[in-house]
Design a protein around this nucleic acid. Structure first.
Lengths: 337, 337
DNA sequence: CTTGGCACTCGGGAACACAGAGTGCCAGAG
DNA sequence: CTCTGGCACTCTGTGTTCCCGAGTGCCAAG
């Protein structure tokens, strides 16, 4: 049905269209790629490709443009992820080297990715639920008020102010803190609820109400923050890529955390690339845009995802290379810190 | 030079132009505002206004458009800040009520402001340097590694991992923590450097190297974070307001923290409105945009600033009202929490 | 199956005309 | 001295027409 030459033609169309942003005609193809056949032949192939929905012509007597289905085939079978250049690699290291706190890592990563791909970059904060407890701290603020601080192995810090049902002396707090840390240290966040259940048993009876209050806030923190935080950067690149229409819609979508979450997609394997092309996309306002995303994490656990969003007409091999490289690098950094 | 009627004409021009986005002519003015004079008279006044640079005509035989200077006069002398409607007030309370952590307050505030004004909102995190220490925590992570956590009275939390020069037992850490808190509690962040100097004296000699390491990191944190964090939202509104040109430039500017900082401007009085119109603006890419900003804070100290950015052609009275109201409300929330 | 030839289609730019909005100026009336 | 109506003039934006060229589909021959 689709012999090798037709595939070659499709590949050529995608490449040319991506680089010129103009519908590509049979003549131009024959000139720029040496396919060894005449324009007429190419026209026949194009007719076949259009027949099957891989390409499409905006109007009679214009060149052809790849459809979403065409890009899909291109990504799946006609292209290879392009590794980064040495210079780009160095840029990544320079950009992410020597960062200390999580906020900064995420911030820099998102900018780096935007700059590297010249598109809009999206990075999800390392998930709370998939990481583990490094430390729990209880800080007395007033007689009946403490601040609960939760530190995860990814360096994320969550804090909450807790009003206590009664005044509690510092040493009782200290004991509570010790017990809590003994139980929770290294515990995966998803298993905190069960683990925490055994805490009261280890406490004197009089401390249990206070503990209960604190624990409920702790659990609440975990649940609430399940909706993860996401940041993006590089919206200026949107304006540059003369976006056909709907720039407005795209900007709106970007400000909806929920939409962004869904965009980054379900977790695949670690560092495995997910590509969503145009209409494959769950969100209506984002037809005309593609998303390339990957999970990142330390060790073998996927902590969160990151990716870029750009016009369907994007350079997939390069973009995919950049996303994958950044995802891996961030993973290393998180593991190392 | 500018009699009352001319001012009235200018006001009318600004109002009409803001609401229609089309150059306004003498006829339309005479119709829509009852100025009690004929179009011909208005034309004479307009000629005078143009002579003095308050308005300008895009081409012969088009209506007039206010210049930056015209808007400036309008803001300074011809308009009053418009208070929010009851519904808007309720919206603010609903939106900001019952928030717990600082991140969330800022996040919601920026969205609220964007929604209220239909423009791009910009909010600076409460400044570290202008707030004070509520608590310092030192959390042992490993034998020679601790996490330093700084909690401010605005609820902001900063953390840093510190590698120690030697292994230190928990009780020594505890003592250090106690001393540190005793010295710093309630201390304004700007005076931390001096205050911290006396800490070593209160420690046994053998703890001093460790303390020095920790303190230097603490000070570093304060300095580094002097460059404040800023967030924005509502970029979709930019696309809606059919921005003459340079949407790209605007988006770029928004992603430059430094530029944003300068935009929000130097601190005026608390809740005092700063308005920068078009070319009054320090940044080249932002000609054609105006900024309305205000400081916010708890009590009488200004902690940070917030504001909105939109086309020069904006509804100043309404925008100013919204910014001021939000600034006040956020101030209250910070004070109350 | 490939190729060259050919007639056909259609979008986009250039040239042009035109209506409408708005102006400036002037002379006359309060 | 100020206001007003009248009038001629100047533009822009829009709609129309026209034409060029790129690109196609189809066909008949190699």
């Amino acid at each position: 049905m689709l012999d090798d030459r037709k595939l070659a033609v499709l590949r050529a169309i995608v490449e040319d269209y991506v680089s010129t942003n103009e519908p590509v005609g049979s003549k131009a193809l024959a000139d720029r790629h040496n396919l060894g056949v005449s324009p007429a032949t190419i026209r026949n192939d194009m007719a076949a490709l259009e027949e099957q929905g891989y390409i499409h012509q905006p109007h009679t007597s214009a060149g052809r443009v790849p459809t979403d289905k065409g890009y899909r085939l291109f990504v799946d079978r006609l292209s290879q992820v392009k590794p980064l250049s040495a210079a780009e690699r160095r840029a990544i290291e320079a950009f992410l080297g020597g960062v200390v706190d999580l906020d900064e890592i995420v911030m820099r990563t998102v900018r780096l990715l935007a700059q590297l791909t010249r598109q809009v970059a999206v990075v999800q904060y390392p998930s709370l639920t998939r990481s583990s407890v490094r430390h729990v701290e209880i800080v007395p603020l007033a007689e009946r008020r403490v601040m609960l601080v939760l530190i995860t192995n990814t360096g994320r810090v969550e804090q909450r102010v807790v009003d206590l049902p009664e005044a509690v002396a510092e040493d009782r707090i200290a004991h509570l803190r010790a017990v809590l840390n003994a139980c929770l240290d290294g515990c995966g966040l998803s298993s905190v609820p069960e683990t925490v259940a055994e805490v009261p048993e280890r406490l004197p009876a009089k401390d249990r109400p206070v503990a209960a209050t604190i624990l409920s806030v702790l659990l609440e923190t975990l649940v609430e923050r399940h909706e993860e935080k996401i940041v993006f950067a590089g919206t200026a690149n949107l304006a540059a890529a003369d976006f056909s229409v709907g720039l407005r819609d795209v900007l709106e979508a970007l400000e909806e955390q929920v939409v962004l979450m869904r965009l980054l997609g379900e977790t695949g394997g670690l560092s495995e690339l997910t590509v969503r092309i145009g209409s494959e996309n769950p969100y209506t306002g984002l037809r005309g845009t593609s998303i390339v995303a990957a999970g990142y994490g330390s060790g073998d656990k996927e902590l969160a995802r990151l990716g870029v969003l750009g016009p369907t007409r994007m350079d997939y091999p390069v973009t995919m290379g950049a996303v994958r490289a950044v995802a891996r690098y961030v993973g290393q950094i998180l593991a190392g810190s």
